[in-house]
């Protein structure tokens, strides 16, 4: 696949142009400037640390200052606006995420006699794949189908990640720069603004 590497810094540059509606710009700049959360509001400190380790493995980031996915999820859960539905088999989000993270730690202890964050990559993946496959058993997992927890966790993190301007930069997502609409919409038609040729 061609065109899959985009230059650094293009999002900030385009955000300042007339191609972005002021209200959209304000929202994305605000998201870009959000500080990393040092103390959680929703999770306890131990669970928050585990969540941070989980995030780095589910959505690895090669950045000096990674997007604070654990902090963003903590914030979302503390406000809990909801998204209109949940699987009937799962408890409410606030219960689900607390129990799920604790369940991940217990799986790590059981399988490797280590805390989740001390696992090496292969061990971490083994735990994550067990949960994703719905095969986690015991402890919290007797009440929570682990595949559904994994789906909810992953979807939540992915939505937070790809809403962030730096993730948009990574995938060349310039959809927000539409204040003048799009004119060249056909196959291989490139128009300004464009990540590769601002």
């Amino acid at each position: 696949m061609e065109n899959t590497n985009y230059p650094d810094g293009w999002v900030k540059e385009i955000l300042e142009t007339e191609f972005v509606k002021p209200s959209t710009r304000a929202l994305l700049l605000d998201r870009l400037d959000t500080n990393t959360k040092s103390t959680p509001d929703f999770f306890d400190d131990e669970s928050f640390s585990i969540l941070q380790c989980v995030c780095m493995r589910l959505i690895p980031q090669d950045r000096n200052e990674p997007i604070d996915l654990a902090g963003l999820l903590d914030e979302q859960l503390s406000k809990s606006p909801g998204n209109g539905w949940r699987y009937d088999e799962l408890p409410e989000d606030k219960v689900l995420f607390k129990k799920g993270i604790k369940g991940m730690e217990k799986l790590a202890q059981m399988a490797f006699a280590k805390t989740f964050c001390d696992l090496d990559d292969a061990e971490t993946d083994q735990i994550l794949l067990t949960i994703q496959a719905g095969n986690a058993k015991g402890y919290e997992w007797d009440q929570i189908p682990s595949n559904l927890f994994f789906e909810e966790l992953l979807a939540s993190l992915v939505e937070l990640y790809y809403s962030h301007p730096l993730a948009k930069e990574e995938i060349g997502d310039i959809s927000f720069a539409d204040a003048k609409g799009w004119k060249n919409i056909g196959l291989d038609q490139i128009e300004k603004p464009n990540p590769n040729n601002r």
Partner: peptide, 11 residues
Amino acid sequence: WGKALIEHMRC
């Protein structure tokens, strides 16, 4: 998830 997700979304 992981690298597979990142690579897929790059496209």
